[in-house]
């Protein structure tokens, strides 16, 4: 007698837990031949609000961790993904990838995570400055995370796109509420399992699945979201930009997933300039 396969239930990821959508709704993800591959949570605006609330609380402690520690955690994500790479290859193949392309995709994603892991404790050294002001002050500018970033992944999203856009956000100390691709949601949820076993504190990354048409609005109008990362080709781009005006969210249009670089991190950083007087009394000179 053949063994009955145990099917996986795909749930959403909020605050380090895997709840079902509070709405109780689902949709069927299908492959290119229209064959259903899984039931996926159809998240609601309430799920977005829950996720934002939790991401807000998680952001401060994440920012306050040492940059070195964030680097270690990101590297840990790469380690765990490497160990589970065959699962991701299979899942990508369910979504019509060839085995070769799926393998390449997973390997590239792992390497991309390692790349941003290395940036965590370096980007601020490269992008900050000590400013030679004319008055007797010590003056320097450093980056600080913009805060909570809403990430709307493009519909073509695969594993590589997800990590390419997510990693620079969290490397810089931001928390994130991520709306997965409606067409390719499987790897996003399985990736949440990787995050959850990689010492990423609960709430730093929250992953929702569902209809982008329904979810872009609660995310881009939420007053506790500081910035949005949106696909340049998103049909909702203009609406999102308009919605973002209310609290002046920074809306960043995505660079290609093929690119990696410092700018992907600094796009989600503020710059803070600090001044302090230099006491100049007594008349001692700095000459030898």
């Amino acid at each position: 007698m053949s063994r009955l396969e145990v099917l996986k239930t795909y749930k959403i990821f909020i605050g380090g837990k895997f709840p079902r959508t509070e709405s109780g709704r689902y949709y069927k993800a299908v492959n290119s031949k229209g064959v259903p591959v899984a039931n996926i949570c159809l998240s609601s605006r309430k799920d977005v609000r829950n996720a934002v609330q939790i991401a807000r609380k998680a952001q401060g402690p994440w920012q306050e961790r040492s940059a070195f520690n964030r680097g270690q955690i990101l590297y840990r994500i790469a380690e765990i993904l490497e160990g589970r790479s065959s699962q991701f290859v299979e899942e990508l193949m369910l979504q019509d990838y060839s085995k070769i392309n799926a393998t390449k995709e997973v390997e590239a994603a792992i390497d991309r995570i390692v790349y941003y892991a290395g940036w965590c404790d370096k980007f601020n050294q490269v992008s900050s400055s000590v400013n030679p002001v004319s008055s007797s002050h010590f003056n320097f500018s450093t980056n600080e995370p913009v805060g909570l970033v809403g990430l709307l992944l493009p519909e073509s999203s695969s594993l590589l796109t997800l990590v390419s856009y997510l990693m620079p956000i969290i490397a810089g100390g931001n928390s994130c509420v991520l709306i997965a691709s409606e067409r390719f949601p499987l790897t996003a949820i399985t990736f949440a399992e990787v995050l959850n076993t990689s010492d990423v504190p609960g709430g730093v990354v929250n992953i929702l699945t569902g209809a982008v048409a329904e979810l872009w609005s609660p995310l881009s109008t939420h007053m506790d979201v500081n910035a949005l990362s949106v696909d340049l080709k998103s049909p909702y781009l203009k609406d999102i930009q308009l919605a973002a005006v209310e609290n002046l969210k920074r809306v960043m249009c995505m660079h290609s997933a093929d690119e990696q670089g410092l700018v992907n991190i600094t796009d989600f950083q503020e710059l803070k300039t600090t001044w302090h007087p230099i006491e100049n009394i007594g008349g001692a000179s700095n000459s030898y």
């Binding site: 400055s129 400013n131 030679p132 008055s135 003056n139 803070k272 300039t273 600090t274």
Partner: peptide, 15 residues
């Protein structure tokens, strides 16, 4: 911009 023990200082080199 944060001024410590000073306020309203500006300079072309200072963002």
């Amino acid at each position: 911009v944060v001024w410590a023990n000073t306020y309203n200082k500006f300079d072309p080199a200072s963002p």
